[in-house]
């Protein structure tokens, strides 16, 4: 981990997380604080937006501005806040049910729009807050409370989906490696556009299949395997791996963000501009109606 511009305690929240002991989300919270600290982002200039779920409670456990939104709606909520105040660093945190289930449509559009948002998905392959139903990333034939005879659905591959949707920054972390994850999140925050950081974040209570040991046996780091993050085809191949599980930066490409293309933002964030616009322009609109 790079040296911190701001100490990690800067971001200590008002209350301790109420996650189950050893929940993978603790690692994500720590990595997020480290990422913010490494970039020196002041808590007052950071906005963490979430939906609903265990992992979506994260904004309550970090010292920064936060919105705890409705289930699946973090992306549009963050979109509005970002476009109103592009000076804020906006991070979305949530789970696989929230992001890849109920909120999937929003995520795909945010990717193709290249909104300057960093989305950290704590993917535990199960619905935890509602006590253990199948999620969009639960494996085929896996038994959960809602699939007692085995899950009949193929799991979603979020990384392949993101690559196909035109996401310009696609990465995967693992809660067992906070330092790597912090680097990936910081990279996403620095990235000019939408960044997806999918994280294997084990649910120790409701998922006894995708555990820490399960991932430790399978993960390997792309950066140590000679992967070129500029190579989309290689990224797609890596995303398709299922025996060994690659982590790290799959793909990154620089292109103008949505804000770069938005004419109304040319003169700075709307929230910092005077409330009244151009009176002459208004009067000419009225004149055109006469």
């Amino acid at each position: 981990m790079a040296t911190l511009e701001l100490p990690i305690e800067t971001y200590d929240g008002p209350v301790d997380p109420d996650w189950c002991p050893a929940c993978g989300d603790f690692g994500v919270l720590k990595a997020l604080k480290q990422a913010a600290g490494s970039l020196g982002i002041r808590p007052d200039d950071m906005l963490v937006v979430s939906g609903i779920g265990c992992s979506s409670n994260l904004p309550g456990f970090i010292h920064a501005y936060g919105v705890h939104g409705l289930h699946g709606r973090a992306v549009p909520l963050a979109t509005g806040a970002h476009l109103a105040n592009t000076d804020l660093t906006v991070v979305i945190t949530g789970g696989d049910g929230d992001g890849y289930g109920i909120g999937l449509g929003h995520m795909l559009h945010a990717m193709r729009r290249n909104l300057n948002l960093t989305y950290v998905v704590m993917n535990n392959q199960v619905y935890g807050l509602t006590t253990g139903q199948a999620s969009p990333t639960t494996g085929l034939e896996v038994v959960t409370k809602s699939t007692p005879r085995g899950n009949p659905e193929l799991p979603l591959n979020p990384l392949a989906m993101a690559l196909a949707a035109g996401c310009g920054y696609v990465a995967r972390g693992f809660s067992g490696d906070v330092a790597q994850m912090a680097g990936l999140i910081a990279g996403g925050m620095r990235h000019r556009g939408f960044a997806l950081v999918d994280v294997f974040s084990p649910c120790v209570t409701y998922n006894h299949l995708n555990t820490y040991p399960y991932f430790r046996e399978r993960v390997y780091k792309l950066e140590e395997a000679g992967h070129d993050p500029a190579d989309l085809a290689a990224a797609m191949r890596a995303a398709g791996e299922s025996e060994r599980l690659p982590t790290g930066l799959f793909y990154q490409v620089e292109r103008p963000s949505y804000a770069d293309r938005e004419p109304a933002l040319a003169d700075g964030p709307p929230v910092k501009r005077p409330i009244k616009g151009n009176g002459d322009a208004f009067r000419s609109l009225i004149a055109a109606m006469c």
């Binding site: 919105v67 909520l77 509005g80 806040a81 476009l83 109103a84 105040n85 804020l88 929230v271």
Partner: peptide, 10 residues
């Protein structure tokens, strides 16, 4: 939600 997000942001 984008409108609420923008309204929240000021």
């Amino acid at each position: 939600h984008t409108a609420i997000g923008a309204g929240y942001a000021g």
